[in-house]
Amino acid sequence: MSGEIIGTYATAICLLIGSAFIIVGVIGLLKFNDPMTRLHAPTKVGTIGIGMLLLASMIHSFVLGDTSVHEILIMAFLFVTAPISAHFIAKVSIHTRTCATPPPPPRDDTWSTLSVPEQEVQAEN
């Protein structure tokens, strides 16, 4: 067993694990029946799936001999942006009132997403 063979097997296994995580995320997207629970599966299981695919690509570049590490950049970018897009989608769900109403916060009046529409409702009444 030389290093190349071990590297090739490691690439293949990382590919399989990554695609399994991604398909589980998509199954979660289809299966759950509430907008907020649907948010959980693809935004994070998908992120770790892409991470495994990028790891496979890095190992493969080491096997081929031309070292490549800028996959780390894509991974870091995804790990920074995935929470932000999940946060925005959660805010959309709260704003359009399509999920269960959250409990009121103990120390402030209301949540920041809900505070503006309530003033508009009072103005309409």
């Binding site: 990554g18 998908g46 990028l54 496979a56 690509s57």
Partner: peptide, 26 residues
Amino acid sequence: PTPGDRILALDTMVINALGLIIVLGI
């Protein structure tokens, strides 16, 4: 059913397309 779900599905499709490009590169 809701707009939030549609945005989430589009986001997942972008992530999957990213994965397809990476696997094509490998």
